[in-house]
Nucleic acid binder design. Structure first.
Lengths: 347, 347
DNA sequence: AAAGCTTACGAAAACGTTTTCGTGTTGATA
DNA sequence: TATCAACACGAAAACGTTTTCGTAAGCTTT
């Protein structure tokens, strides 16, 4: 029982392909009799038009390409769920490519999809891409007339629609919260500067301190190497943080730029016999499962990832359907929200 | 700068489309001169054949459809990462559909993809599908000549390749481990029976008790309703479990069929002043972030999700490329592994 | 009865490929 | 010089659609 096509229906009912096509779209160019006969037949044998043929004809695939650095990752999957939601609502499919934080995989994946498989991209660039600053694949894609929407890790060098989290502001609010909770010596655990969001969050941290006239102590900024993010290095990560905490015993508040750093900081604090939140208050970024289920539960900056995904998909689909690829481009900023839990409770 | 096609190249170089096509595939039907000229031109302007046109011609899309119940979910994303890995290695793309545990969304999503967009499916069915026992969409897909590989939540009613976790065996090993650690009153926190894997894990639990001649106490089996899995019910979940623990004070070991249940059990135990692992030992299923970062860290049954995904993609691609859709079908069982952590430590 | 107008349908092009087959030119062979 | 192979290329079909255009048959109008 192979797939039914217009041609087969035409043959079976002894009419032409055009007649079948028109009858199925209920064109009154075809007599009522013939129309009903054809429609009944199509329904009976469950005819569905071939998507690929339609794509070729219409020069649109109704498919969005999504490129993310990782998929086993709470934030990115939350975003994807938002993308999928509006894509489905508007009749689009979602094809996923993973860069695994690698520049070359990002390029290969985009190449693979850019050749007609999709109508546009939604992408958060790999760490390595940010580091190398090689954006030729993005420029080429745009030059070919394929729209891109960047989210979260965006690049100012690229002219396209963007959806970002207000990283700096979220960090600022978090640090202000720590200050208001009584912390005076606030440390930050962050990434190296080439990660755009890490840098932005660090900026917010510094802004909050300045705002409250707390002097910036360079030693309080712990910038961790990318390798420490790997699964197998979680013990090492906790140790590095423990050393840092031991070297700076005055620290009474920690702002960490992601969940893992925050949880590792809490673990390290326990090693050192510090009580959370009494001796040390901790705030993380990204409101994932880990924050909710940690003990003590973690106060964090929630990014509203799903909403972010919805906005990104919306921007892309709107641009596609209006068939308007030129500037102006839009940058949507999704506000963060501080979710207060046990790790910052006051006594 | 629109997409380059064979036709445009042909026009530009004043040859026929066939010549261009042949030259690009390095056919020596074309003179060396012409070949080089065409290849140089194609390279210069970065020609890439249109995937959609190829798909139409070859009647294969080199794309796999993956249908999962949820994407913000550690196990499923781990599986997807495995699928994506071997798919990419073999030149396939991955298109993702989410059922959100809903039967109708599963059907709609499969319908959308089955009309030519993909070559085959990899699916873990929605909870509601298991409950309704309506599998017409799966049967129809298979009847249309499109292969399916089921994973994790598989259906015996469907004749296709399958990849499963040895749920029963993993549960059995976990419970034996609790017994060997000295537990004599072991409870299980599980799902309702219509969830296939929940039922299997419950079976393993019962088998282990029987094996060690420990009488089965019906009251020790806590079957939780699906609604308690929702994000907003996490407090409710902990309370239900606390009540259960209070009603059965003799319980000194808990086997939970997923991470959330296990963590909620630990939280509930803390409410009741029970110390883990001294008063109560806990083992979960699924080795996700939560287990690693919990305090105390959680002993769990690891499912090797990535391997599972790799196997599933392998089975599907092999069947596609051998163009052999008939039985026999294969069922691969991926072994689980008990990862021991603090929640079962002995003193 | 000639002209025009509906009605109901079919032929063919187009989307971008690959591939089969046909054909004109060249050079070698008989 | 006539025949034939090799060479180098082009025409056309096919994949499954949609859509434009053409047209035969039947009808109405004058």
């Amino acid at each position: 029982m192979q797939k039914l096509t217009l041609k087969k229906i035409a043959k079976e009912l002894d009419v032409s392909i055009s007649t079948v096509s028109k009858a199925l779209s209920d064109s009154h160019e075809i007599s009522k009799d013939t129309r009903q006969k054809i429609q009944a037949f199509a329904k009976l044998y469950n005819y569905r038009p071939n998507n690929i043929a339609l794509s070729l004809k219409n020069k649109k695939t109704k498919t969005l390409g999504v490129i993310i650095p990782e998929i086993v990752h709470h934030f990115f999957t939350t975003v994807v769920s938002g993308i999928e939601k509006v894509a489905n609502e508007r009749g689009y499919n979602v094809i996923i490519g993973l860069s695994n934080e690698s520049f070359s995989k990002e390029v290969i994946n985009m190449d693979m999809l850019a050749n007609g498989s999709i109508d546009g991209f939604i992408i958060s660039v790999a760490r390595e891409t940010q580091l190398k600053k090689d954006f030729h694949h993005l420029h080429e894609t745009i030059n070919q007339g394929m729209p891109i929407v960047m989210f979260d890790r965006v690049l100012p060098e690229i002219a396209c629609d963007k959806v970002v989290v207000d990283d700096a502001e979220g960090a600022r609010k978090a640090v202000l919260n720590l200050i208001d909770a009584g912390c005076r010596n606030i440390g930050i655990i962050t990434t190296e500067d080439h990660v755009s969001v890490g840098k932005l969050r660090t900026g917010g941290y510094e802004a909050a301190l300045k705002e409250r006239n707390i002097p910036l102590d360079e030693g309080f900024e712990l910038k961790l190497k990318d390798e420490l993010n790997e699964e197998e290095n979680i013990e090492e990560l906790a140790k590095v943080i423990a050393t840092y905490l031991k070297d700076h015993p005055a620290i009474d508040g920690i702002f960490a730029v992601n969940e893992i750093y925050a949880l590792s900081a809490m673990k390290a604090a326990r090693y050192l016999g510090k009580h959370i939140p009494k001796d040390l208050k901790v705030i993380g970024f990204t409101d994932g499962m880990l924050s909710k289920y940690a003990t003590p539960s973690l106060t964090t900056v929630s990014q509203h990832g799903k909403l972010l995904g919805e906005k990104a998909a919306f921007l892309l689909i709107e641009r596609l359907e209006k068939d308007h690829l030129e500037p102006p481009f839009e940058t949507i900023i999704v506000e963060t929200e501080l979710v207060e839990r046990e790790s910052t409770k006051q006594f």
